[in-house]
Amino acid sequence: MDANGEELAPAVRSILSAARDRTGGEERVSVEARSVPAAFAAAEADGRVPVIAEVKPTSPTTDGRRDDDPVDLARAMVDGGAAALSVLTEPEHFGGSPASLERIRAAVDVPVLRKDFILTEAQLDVVESDVVLLIARFVDDLPALVAAARERGFQPLVEVHTRAELDRATSAGADLIGINNRDLARLEVDLDTFESLAPSVPDDVTLIAESGIASVADVRRMREAGADALLIGSAIMDGDVTANVRRLTSA
């Protein structure tokens, strides 16, 4: 069960079990982060919808695996107009690695999000990135982990799915919040999740819509509901990533 007392999907239980066993790095990380709000503003000024494109070789909710060089995929996404990138570093269930993130960040000039199931402060010290994902549902002491991330120079993106999690994120001082349309207890997606929570997000927060965004219509729907940016994975990874990003950022 999670912190909310809900039974988790077997895939999520497996991911969390693996995450609890992973250690941190040997040295404390210090990052000079590329600004996410600045990257979003630059995309807007260029007439593009701010999109965080996700380099995701595979996942428990997709079929198959994509074995392209992650750096080639990342560059293709930036060529298509991605304002930032999300890179999976979870190895066992998503095919990611810290080494891939390190290579990608060296190859592009946009902010890079480390997407993983980070549960402890030590797990922050694995690889440099501009942003780190902290999932409110799974973090015991969210204010402490947000503070630890900032002390290292990271921009913490706090992910929420419920009003209670949103309240925890704002109480922890999060100024970059992602509303995940996917319920991690059941792995079901509902875009209504973003629409129901977005009005409660403080105006000074940069708000990102996550999961289930597959079409231009979905992009427009999330933007109209208040999304400053969108995190999109499967809809970009399926096919020509440059063309997919260009299509979705033109919405």
Rank of each mutant, 00 (worst) to 15 (best):
T193V: 15
A214S: 11
S215V: 01
R186E: 04
V219D: 01
D218E: 02
E188A: 10
L184D: 01
L184V: 01
D204H: 15
A217M: 02
S215E: 06
D218A: 02
S215Q: 04
S211H: 03
I213L: 02
R221V: 08
S196T: 08
E195Q: 06
T193K: 11
S200E: 07
A185Q: 04
R220A: 10
I208N: 03
T193Q: 13
D204M: 07
D192F: 00
D218T: 05
V189G: 04
P202I: 13
D204K: 10
V189Q: 04
S196G: 00
R223I: 15
A217D: 15
F194I: 10
M222V: 06
L197A: 05
L184E: 00
F194N: 06
E210I: 13
I213T: 03
I208V: 15
V219A: 02
D190E: 08
D190W: 03
V201Q: 03
R223C: 11
M222R: 08
R182F: 02
V201W: 06
L207Q: 13
R220S: 15
R221Y: 08
L187E: 00
P199Y: 07
A209G: 15
V189R: 05
M222T: 12
D218H: 09
G212C: 09
E195G: 04
E210D: 12
D204I: 09
E210L: 15
E195M: 02
V189T: 14
S215P: 09
M222E: 15
L207V: 13
R186W: 00
S215N: 01
D218Q: 03
D190G: 03
V219N: 00
A198P: 03
A198S: 14
S215G: 04
P199H: 08
S211Q: 00
D190N: 11
V216Q: 14
R182D: 04
G212R: 14
A209S: 15
P202M: 12
A214F: 13
A185W: 02
I208Y: 03
R182G: 01
A217I: 02
S215M: 07
E195V: 07
V205D: 07
L197C: 05
F194T: 11
E195Y: 00
I208H: 04
R182K: 05
S196R: 15
A214R: 14
S211D: 01
A198N: 09
D203H: 07
A185F: 01
V216R: 14
D218L: 06
P199T: 03
A214I: 06
A217E: 15
